[in-house]
Computed example of a mutant assay.
Amino acid sequence: MGNRLEGKVAIVTGGGSGIGEAICKKFAKEGAKVVVAGLPEDPVEDVVKEIQETGGVAIPFSGDLSSLANAQSCVELAVKQYGKLDILINNAGTFPETNMLSDFTEEAFDYLLKNNNKTVFAMSKAALPELQKTKGNIVTAGSESGILGIAQNVPYGASKGFNHAFTKGLAAEQAQKGVRCNVVAPGPIDTGWTHKETGPMDSQMEKMVTQATILGRRGTPEEVANVYLFLASDEASYVSGAVYPVDGGTLIAKGPAGELAADSMKKQPKEELDLEHSKESHTSVRK
């Protein structure tokens, strides 16, 4: 166990799988008390049990966090259980469909905005009164596609661009209240989203997103969680309003750069976290 978040209380939305699971386990390992929040169908209770079995402290919250009432209940649970709230991680999101815009369904678009944007709005609004008390911080999930845009999923990139601008505005607004706000912008990460068997990508897109990185591979959930840890910790005390790419160099790649990467760059690092749900995909359109 580390101590970089010793004494801190954190809510992590979308904490049941993928990057969210890694953030929850990394934060707990570093001493935080974690509220693992997700939709009712997400394995949040499994993640809580796994954290507790390794000596960490965590509780679950299940609910649709795009509802302000549910968001407030989640914050109230954290404060009731642990006495305060220091960190909000707006990780929840969805990647429901890949299609040309002319074929992109309205149902998928509405679901995208609900989960990628309204949840960020509701959770941030609900958490701010408590974060102002603790001089805490918010870290929100963006994407390299929120900077570059993304073909065959134009609305997804736009939803992440919203999160970038939302966070920058919130950082400027909340500095006077002592609250920092930042964005982590992943590229292709080794979760259910980026495999054709478990997500909406076809084989061509699956290959394309990997070769668009200069490292020639997907990132791991733990590699992303490491950046969340830094931004959420006191080590990032002079960082606010920033968008941190964790994209394997996607933003500077030119052409199929991954083909040229050294074999050592393409090899994923050995992970320390026991991630049981990294390949689970919760991306289907739900009403």
Rank of each mutant, 00 (worst) to 15 (best):
E206N: 04
L5H: 15
K177C: 01
E173D: 15
G2K: 12
V285R: 06
G136E: 07
G216F: 03
K168V: 13
K26I: 01
K135D: 02
G248F: 03
N99Q: 15
A253Y: 09
L68F: 11
F230M: 13
Q81M: 07
L68R: 09
K207H: 02
A158N: 02
G255K: 11
K279W: 06
E97K: 09
A78F: 08
E271I: 11
C74E: 05
R180K: 14
V44W: 02
L170M: 15
G7Y: 08
Y82T: 08
G15I: 00
V44E: 07
Y156G: 03
K254L: 13
N115A: 12
S124I: 07
S159D: 06
S145G: 02
T213R: 08
A236Q: 11
G7H: 10
N117A: 05
E271T: 14
K26Q: 14
V239Q: 08
E30T: 08
D46Q: 10
V154M: 12
K8A: 09
L5S: 10
E206L: 04
V209H: 08
L229R: 11
S73A: 15
T119N: 09
T220G: 05
M201C: 06
R218P: 00
P96V: 07
A127H: 05
K196L: 01
P256L: 13
T134F: 09
K266R: 15
I23Q: 03
I147L: 15
N137V: 06
N182G: 03
M100C: 03
S281I: 09
L65I: 14
L260S: 14
V184S: 08
V243W: 09
E30I: 04
P96S: 04
L77G: 04
A32P: 06
E50H: 06
L101E: 02
S145A: 14
I138W: 01
E50M: 00
A126R: 02
G93Y: 08
T210I: 15
H282P: 05
F162T: 04
S237Q: 13
P40E: 06
V79Y: 04
Y238C: 08
T283I: 13
K287V: 00
V120L: 14
G161P: 03
Y228V: 04
S17C: 08
V243G: 06
L251I: 14
L148A: 12
T98R: 14
P60D: 05
T210S: 11
L128C: 11
A122T: 12
E76Q: 15
V246C: 11
L215R: 08
V120S: 02
V120C: 05
G63N: 03
T54S: 14
G14D: 11
I189G: 10
D247V: 10
G255H: 10
I138A: 04
N137S: 15
K29F: 00
G219N: 09
F109L: 15
V75K: 05
M205K: 12
S67K: 06
L88W: 05
F121Y: 15
I138D: 09
E259S: 12
Q132K: 15
A69P: 00
A92I: 14
K114L: 15
V227G: 00
G18T: 04
N3D: 08
L128T: 13
A122H: 03
G20C: 11
K267A: 12
G161S: 12
N182E: 07
H195E: 05
I19S: 06
